[in-house]
Each structure stands twice: as structure tokens, then as C-alpha cells.
Design a protein around this nucleic acid. Structure first.
Lengths: 198, 198, 198, 198
DNA sequence: AATGAATGAGGGTTCATTCAT
DNA sequence: GATGAATGAACCCTCATTCAT
């Protein structure tokens, strides 16, 4: 990669970072190209040269976020820790990356052009779902997951938990990982409202 | 209330209804005052006379939505149906009212002025929480809820489930209330991943 | 018409006049809404309130020009002057009104939305053409026009002359109505290149 | 001319050709340097290296068009066909080359810098006019043109016809060269409205 | 000579809001 | 109280042009 390309790539990254921060702070709609250009210290036009339109920039940022989520999920799967710990992390850890995008991200992803929807869909089906399935089966083998429920139902339950957590930064913000409340919550995930029978 | 005042109140309601529909269809940001005025068949200025600013209008609509949610929750609590059925309704039924506001409602509520935040907070704490607490205690008395977990943790768990469901219209849209998947999901809410022990 | 409406209509006229002058001076494309607003001493937005878009404004100006042309043609037809004089005026007189719009007017008219094209077309067919036909028949009755050519061909010939004159302000600008050259040109229109035979 | 220079000249021609096509399709104003560079498959900067500015490029294209017109006119003059046929071609044939530039070409030519105006003017006076004069005199010798009108008037008449035809692609588009209407039109050019006397 | 990257200036348009009646 | 008309600020975007290699 020569000097030109390095500089270009660098600019691209600077723009993406600035965009991500401002989108996070103000939302995709409210953060303006002008703001982003200012923050990235480039001309507005440079953003257009790189991403074509605001929509294009949003798309790229959304892609990055989603890839980041997947990357993280994959990393967690490969860790050598007990099943419940890893499940915990899967459910809670997305907070850091994307939770502050509130519902806008899902909304944008849903409303984006068909090409993008397909890309997300396939990625989700292919990669994320596979990871989830792997996790569930590992959990079943180790006796952590009831084998009488369907794979589909369990996946759905986990997804609802994920999204619920994802949508509750206000409630979970100040909770520490080893607090009593945190442990209780995990207990509920595992044993439900009725709880463990002795 | 004389004729003038009745007309005024009527206008107010017409505006609120138009605003709610358009906010729901396009989001708080994208629905414009002009659109709302057009739909309500009043002048833009009339909206300002009633609500002072767009933010004021949004506030009022959010208030209405939240009051509606609470109203509904309260109604459900008073029903004479078995505990699990009512829990089910609480968790799933919000779909109809507010789920189409995506995450924007929460975002707006969170970012609104302190006065409003306080109002919501107190309402939530005072009314909704009370209802939840009542529900939980009823569940405990009837043996549906494990008495070893803290009230707080159970409330949090329910709230996460609620928000997760609320944020998953795509996954739940085509699910019928008596489908196998639906029953499994409810089972998971009650007995968690590990499941019931015989 | 109350004060409001009078003021509005007045503004509309001021904008139209400013637009016409700037379009004439710089062309439809190059004259910007900003320029026009400045010249008319109104906000840009006022122009949008009146005309919806730049295209809408252009449309209205084009309409005005065309109506002006027709009005003038009609007036000439009603005059009580000898046939050759009136023909002369018809061919030459448009210069004053629209010749400075160069070819852009025709281009715009041709490229405009179908509705407008139809409007122009029907006006041209219905009004202008009728006037031309009347003129030609009068000319035939009075022996000024050869009755062996088809109505269609004569109309076409006149239209080509009109457009040729219309497209030649540079060549005709300094020509006085009673100059020798002017008389010769009219002679050529009447008797062609070959000229009158004695 | 070495390899470098040949390549350079080649690039120049490629750019000119691309520019001409796009100017023709979209007009001088709307066709952008970016489009032209894309179509010519060179960098935008290369265009600047060759022509200095967009205006410079437009100038060069206009020059080419005008030289092309003259070339064509000259070629027609040298043909060995009867006078009326050649006159016909002169008047009608420009359609192919430049008629699609509508009025813009004339506008651009008129508004361009004095140097260019002078160049065009002198070319027109020197070359085109000379050709026209030659043609007219040939026509006079052969009895096709009335010798009582001034050279100037006849030239002007021909130019008006030319421009009229040039500005009427809509009316003439579907006319075939040997149609009755076409013959009538030519008759009118030769014998005017009054027509031939027996 | 040629280029990819970057840009200042300006374009049309929309918005929440205010003015004047 | 209600309105039609008007507006400043901001938005996304395009263009001809220049910079750095």
C-alpha cells in the first residue's frame, strides 16, 4: 500500500470513527454530514467521495457495528470458560458496542435497501445463528439446557433476552458483574420465574 | 365548558391523534409539523398555540402513550384469569400499542427535559412498578414464582423480557397465540433454559 | 381581495418579474433561486411556498411568456391593417418579448412534464394555429398567398420563418422597420428567391 | 511525433469526442467534467492539463463544431449537382451535425470571450459568407435567384431559413426528403408565399 | 503527462418557527 | 383562538477546480 492509499484508508477510518461517535450520540438522522466532516477534520465532499451519500455512510457504519458484534460473539465462543459464564457474556456484553444505538440500528437495518437487508440476514443466519446453535448444543450436552424444547424456541428465547438487555442500558448501566442483582438475573435466565426445584 | 372551549379541546384531540399516527408511521423526527397540521386539518400555528413547540407536542404524545400503556397494564391486572395467562398478556400484549414506535420512544423519553423524565420515572415507579409488584406477589403466593429471588431481580427480569418482546416484532409477528413455539417460549419464561425438574 | 391576498399576489408578481429578468439574463439553469429571492427581496422559502420548486417557477414563467406571445398574436390579427403588414408583424414582432430567451425556452417547453407539454400543445393547436389558419385564408382571399400549396405547408413555412427570426436576434437587432434590408427581406418572404415575374 | 506526443494527442481527441457527445446529450452546462472524464476514461485532471478549464474545453468543442459545419458546407459547394438540390442540402442538412445543440451553441458562442467571438466572426465572414456568396451568385447566373435583391438580403433570408429549420427538429423530424410536404416547402423557399406566376 | 484524493463555493430544498391579520 | 404568509437556519448534495504524488 503506497502513501496515497494509506492516506485514503486513514481518512476513511477517521470518517467512520467520527460518524460512529456522532451517530451514537445523536442518532443517524440528527447527526449531520457537516458535523461529521467537522469532527473528522475533512471536507464534506471527502465523505461523499468515500461513501457516495449519507445513506452510504450510515450503511457502512451499520455494517461495521454488526461485524463487530459478530466478531465479538465469535471470540466469546472460542473462549475456554464454563458454559454459563459464556452465555452470560453473550447476552450482556453487546452493551458496550451497540446498545447506545437504541432501536435506531434495528430500524435502519430493517429499512435499508434490499441488498443490505439480504447481507445482514445471511450473515445473521449463517454466522450468528450457527454460533448460537453451537452454543445451545454445547449447553445441552453439558446439561445446562433442557433438551425437550425445540432449538427454535431456545434461540428465540435467547434473542429476546439479548434484545431486552440491549434495550435496557438505563436499567443495567450501573450494575456490576458480580453484584447480587446480576447473579439473580442470570439465575432467572437459567431457571426461569419458577426457579430450581430441590 | 362552553362552545369555544369545546371546540378548542376538540382541536387539541384532533391534533394529538394526527400526531400520534404520523409519529408512529414516520418517527418523531421525520414527521413534520406541516404534515401533522395538514392531517389534522388545522393551521401549523394552531399546533403552536396548543403545544408551544414541536418538542411540546412530542412530550404530550409520549405522555399519552405511556398513560395508555399503564391503563392497559392496570386493566389486565384486574382481570380474573389465571396467573400465567395474565403474565403472558403483560409481556406480549404491549405490541399493539407502542411497539411500532421502535426504540424512539424510549430514546425520546430518556432525552427529554428533566421535568418529563421525573414525571415518567415517578409514574413508572409509582404505578407500573406497583402493578408489577402486585403481580409478582400474587405469582409467589400461587407458587408460580420462586420466593428466593429478590423482588427487584424479578421485576428486572420481567422488564427485560418485555423490552425484548417489544423489540422483536419481526420475530414474533407471525406467531399465533396457541402455536407450539409460543407455548415453548412461555415455558422458557417460567422454567428458564434448564427447565423443569421432575 | 383582502390585505392578505393582495400582499400575497403582489409578492407572487414580484417574484415572477424578478425570475423572468434573471432567467432572461442568465438562462433558466444558471439563474439561481437564491439570486431570484435576493432580487425580489423575499426569502427563498417564499418562492417555494408560491411555486413549490424551481421547476414550478420555471413552468410559471414559461406559461406567462407563452400566454404573452399568444396575446400579442391575437391582438395583431384583430388590427385593421393590410395583410402584408400584419404578416410582417407576426413574423418579426415576437423578437421583443421572447427572443432573448434564446433556444432555452423551446428546450424547456419540450422537456417539461407531460401535463405542461399538453397544455402548450393544445394552446398552440387551438389558439395560435387557428390564428395562423385565419391569416392564411385571408391572405389567400386577397391574392397574397398561392392557393396551390397546402395549408400545412404554408403553416410550416411560416413557422420556420418565425423560428428563424426568433433565433436571429443577433442579425436583426439593429435593423429598422423601414430600412431597405427589411423591405427586401419581406419581399423574399412573399416572392421567394426566384422573385416576382413581370 | 514520438510515442509520448502521440499518446497525448490521442487523449486529447478522446476527450473532445466524449465531451461533444455529452454536451450534445445534456447541454454544455449540465454535462460535468466528471462525466466527461469518466466517459473518456481519463482523470479529470488530464482534462485540465489539456484545456485549462471547463470553459476552455467548451471553447474547443464549439470550435470543432463550427469547423465541422464549414467543412460540410464547403463539401456541398463542390458537389456537382443542380443548384436547387444543393441549396436544399445546405438548408436542411445541418440537422445532422449541430441541430441537437439547440440554441445553446449560439448562446455560448455569443457569450464567449472576445477573442473567440472574433475568431468565429472572422471565420463566418471569411469562409462561410464567401461560400454563401458563391452559391448565391451561381444561383443568380443560372436564373434561380432574383438579381434585384441585394446580396445581403438574400444571405440573411437564407440564414433565417437555416436557423428556422435548425430550430424545428420537432416539426421536421418525420418528414421524408421526397414527401409532398417537403417538395412544397422547397417550392415556398424558391417562390415565396405568392408563388410562381405563369 | 497523468492521476487519485481532496476541497470551497454554491445548488435546491425542508424544517420548525414567527409575523401580521 | 385561529390563520395564511413568510422566514433563518440547516440539510444533503454537486460542481469545477487544486493538491500531492
Amino acid at each position: 500500500m503506497n502513501g496515497f492509499e494509506r492516506k485514503k484508508e486513514q481518512n476513511r477510518q477517521v470518517i467512520l470513527r467520527a460518524a460512529m461517535e456522532l451517530f451514537q450520540a445523536y442518532g443517524f438522522k440528527k447527526a449531520s454530514i457537516s458535523d461529521i466532516a467537522h469532527k473528522a477534520d475533512v471536507s464534506q465532499v471527502t465523505i461523499y467521495n468515500h461513501f457516495g451519500s449519507k445513506e452510504g455512510l450510515v450503511r457502512e457504519v451499520v455494517k461495521d457495528i454488526i461485524l463487530g458484534i459478530i466478531e465479538k460473539a465469535r471470540a466469546i465462543m472460542k473462549e475456554d470458560r464454563p458454559f454459563p459464564k459464556r452465555l452470560e457474556t453473550i447476552i450482556f456484553d453487546k452493551t458496550e458496542i451497540a446498545s447506545q444505538f437504541h432501536g435506531e440500528l434495528l430500524q435502519v437495518a430493517a429499512q435499508s435497501d434490499p441488498e443490505m437487508r439480504e447481507w445482514i440476514e445471511s450473515l445473521w443466519q449463517g454466522d450468528v445463528n450457527q454460533l448460537t446453535v453451537d452454543l445451545i448444543q454445547e449447553g445441552m450436552r453439558q446439561g445446562y439446557i433442557n433438551t425437550q424444547q425445540s432449538q427454535e424456541a431456545i434461540t428465540l428465547y435467547l434473542e429476546i433476552l439479548r434484545r431486552g438487555v440491549f434495550a435496557s442500558p438505563d436499567l443495567l448501566a450501573n450494575m456490576e458483574p458480580d453484584a447480587k442483582l446480576y447473579r439473580e438475573l442470570n439465575y432467572l435466565f437459567m431457571y426461569g420465574l419458577v426457579g430450581k426445584r430441590q
